[in-house]
Design a protein around this nucleic acid. Structure first.
Lengths: 344, 344
DNA sequence: ATGAAAGCGCTAACAC
DNA sequence: GTGTTAGCGCTTTCAT
């Protein structure tokens, strides 16, 4: 029995009526099933075009058990790193006909769990970006979120690949670079406390300190944006360090700006380094020494991993590690005679 | 008849079985229907918790005819302007329990129509961000996309509010500022050709030229990123202009960087202005004179408009106009004695 | 107050 | 080859 669609919108039933066939046939035609008589198929297609019929994805999703949508949960959509990941992910997924649903947790780790679950139920898979939740919680919810890909975080839960940038190694490379320039007093302007990538940087610094006991490394609290860097000038000067490793490029830029306002020269008085190599980094004055992370590619790879899981294929690289690449530019230079700490 | 859910996942039927009630009752409880006996309701809730049951949003969407999701179509997710709009939109929508589905058209205007339609069918409403398509096409498809909100674009189609930034006025304010500083030869480093906001800027410049016939305004082709600005140094110098209006802050930063490399001083030799007032603008060297656009707020307002349409309420402000605010910083200064055009 | 049943729009197994 | 029918998981009349 064929009824006309009840709602206002054009449904498969309307096309069926117009073409004088059953809605099953319409469905077949719309899905390219070749067992349909060419003549009838043409009639159906004509009716569909005339009525501007487009299958309702919700009905389709319910019947097929898939949504052709993936979700991504990020701690902060304002952060350029996550924007870049989102961009890479969205572009790659789009090429395979998948859309992306975004969920911003605004750095509230308790919210993350809820958001992730909700997003996952609407989608065929999930990318969890540098989640702020604890290892225990992550491991507990991970199975229920699969297919799941982790970025900048790992978990003991099975079948959950993760893509992580080796921030630890990157920080060590930067520190080595500063030491080679003669710096013996360094300071690290840290990122958000719960950030996994910040922890990796801290671990890297520990390794560095162990290898270079003669170098003094001061730890300063921070954040991930310009203002953090700009506001850290006092603390930086107080530390007496001549080589500053900022959490990321944004922080470095804010810091350089603040130092400039104080009449200090970079790298003449102080060398500053960033992290990420965002496009801005090569246009700052001076241009910024940093560690390049192929961050958009990370988003793209996340999709490839997720796609493999969704298709139930063997993942070719279950968990990849990305090595940042040191980019030496103009914000770092030889250490000048040791500065004395400035107090106040 | 109550059957257990067929698929692997926990469904409403499983909870019904466990609680010894019909799934209708479970549905009532899950939706806070108070006609259910408190004792039974408690039993159902307990069963739901124990089974970790969460209603399937797809089934819900099909039954309710709504998805609690909105879509946003942007021409380029890499553009900070659209990122900011997305952020504002996402944050505001999340507060009302709505999620955001993104569709990036990658500046391909033919793709926009398809993407918009697809996104719309999965969502309860759509935000179309500075679409590149023609007025005719926009007007034609707009009705089928409603509830629809336009950003930086208007249409004759009925019931489609739009939020537009008055880029024309902003550009005029900047140009006036440069004239007051004594500049008589200006150049505009344009944005993407199909960009509506670029057209608005061009219109603003026409108005400016009409009001200031004595001022020479050179038009230069451009784009919307750093590289555009950086690569425009030759053209800028060739123009002989002393006051350069860059399409946006990114272009301005690229240009300043390029000028710096040539040993030219900003604003000593040339004044440079941006547009948007992205956070970076106050940290460049020199700090950037620009026109501030409350772009995140724009995304937020887009949601409020869309929400009103979805709820079928009267929109309180059917189509708002945002005035950019001139921010004078250090990248603009008095014109020095007229430079002669540099050739080659 | 609760269960049975219809229906949201679609796909797919099953008959013919 | 095509129509009939039974779901997909949920909400919501309509009976009781």
């Amino acid at each position: 029995m064929v009824r006309k669609s009840a709602s206002g919108r054009i449904g498969i039933a309307d096309v069926a009526v117009k073409a004088g066939v059953s809605h099953a046939t319409v469905s077949r035609v719309m899905n390219g099933n070749f067992t349909v008589d060419p003549e009838i198929a043409a009639r159906v297609r004509a009716a569909a075009v005339e009525l501007k019929y487009q299958p309702n994805p919700v009905g389709r999703s319910l019947a097929l058990g898939k949504t052709d949508t993936i979700g991504i949960v990020v701690p902060d959509l304002a952060n350029p790193t996550f924007q870049a990941i989102l961009r890479g992910l969205s572009r790659a997924a789009a090429q395979d006909g998948y859309r992306v649903l975004i969920a911003d947790s605004f750095e509230v780790s308790s919210e993350e769990t809820i958001l992730a679950g909700e997003a996952r139920r609407r989608c065929d898979g999930l990318v969890l970006c540098a989640p702020r939740m604890s290892d225990a919680e992550l491991e507990e919810i991970a199975p229920s979120l699969r297919p799941l890909v982790l970025i900048n975080r790992t978990t003991a839960a099975a079948g959950v690949p993760s893509l992580v940038v080796d921030y630890g190694q990157g920080v060590q490379d930067i520190a080595e670079h500063l030491v080679e320039l003669g710096h013996t007093r360094l300071a690290f302007l840290a990122g958000p406390p719960r950030s996994a990538s910040n922890n990796l940087r801290l671990q890297g610094l520990e390794a560095f300190k162990a290898a270079h006991p003669q170098v003094e490394v001061t730890m300063l609290e921070g954040g991930s944006d310009f203002d953090t860097g700009h506001g850290a000038v006092d603390a930086v000067l107080e530390s007496g360090a001549t080589g500053i490793l900022a959490f990321n490029d944004l922080v470095a830029m804010g810091l350089m700006s603040g130092l400039h306002e104080r009449g200090l020269d970079v790298p003449g008085d102080i060398s500053v380094t960033g992290f990420d190599d965002i496009p801005f980094a090569r246009y700052t004055t001076p241009t910024l020494t940093t560690a390049a992370v192929p961050i958009t590619e990370l988003g793209e790879q996340a999709w490839h991993q997720l796609r493999a899981l969704i298709r139930n294929e063997e993942s070719d690289a279950p968990g990849s590690r990305y090595q940042p690449k040191l980019e030496v530019r103009a914000s770092t230079g030889p250490a000048k005679a040791a500065r004395t700490a400035v107090h106040g």
